[in-house]
Amino acid sequence: MTIRPDRRTEPTQLRPFSSSQNLLNRCDGSAQFQFDKTAVLVSITGPTEVKFRDEKLDRASLEVIVRPLTGLSSTKERVLENVMRSTFANVILTGLHPRTSIQIVAQVMKDDGCVSVGSAAINATTMALLDAGIPMNALVGSVTCMVGKEDGEILMDPTMEELSRARSIHTFAFDSASRTSVMMDENGGKGTSGGVVLYSESTGDFTEDEWWLYKA
């Protein structure tokens, strides 16, 4: 039995996560998702009036804004915006609300420096979309994992301390509808039972076999 820095006992164990919905009064849907010391609050407005420039005749346009914990948003946030938009573009049934805009604003509330902010933001967005009643064809669940430098052990949802000895870091998002091959372990609570990868980003030094393994 391994003991991880934050007293988790299993490599596949996630940090305690929680989510609460309908926190904000003035938007159409909101949710906060938290992995221990990483938390993201997401608000949804829409379907609402669209700027003429972004108007699409056959579907709603998605507008994603990510605000960092402190300071101005940088390249990192822009990348997360891009990831979130492309992840949810095909999950939200945008065709049902043509010529409108759905705005997703994610505010990082707590960030302990680990890479799971992206995962938390994706999970929070799913919960907020549910709260807003935006039609979707599936739920999206996301998780981050890493592989150790020395032992090659896969750790789910690594902490900052564990990340310092990571050889590669991986973030995945799965949708709940396509129950095909892989099963995710922990996400039962959110109703995700794995399936096709919607978004995947892996960095570091790793082999193909390892990559398939993380997905399992």
């Binding site: 891009n82 990831v83 492309s86 992840t87 573009a89 095909n90 999950v91 064809n137 599936a138 949708d175 396509s178 095909t180 096709v196 990868v197 919607l198 978004y199 995947s200 980003e201 892996s202 960095t203 570091g204 030094d205 790793f206 082999t207 193909e208 990559w211």
Partner: peptide
């Protein structure tokens, strides 16, 4: 060896 895999978008049983 793989350095990076970046996959965005999709859904509906493609990937």
């Amino acid at each position: 060896r793989l350095c990076h895999i970046w996959k965005v978008g999709g859904g509906s049983n493609t990937a």
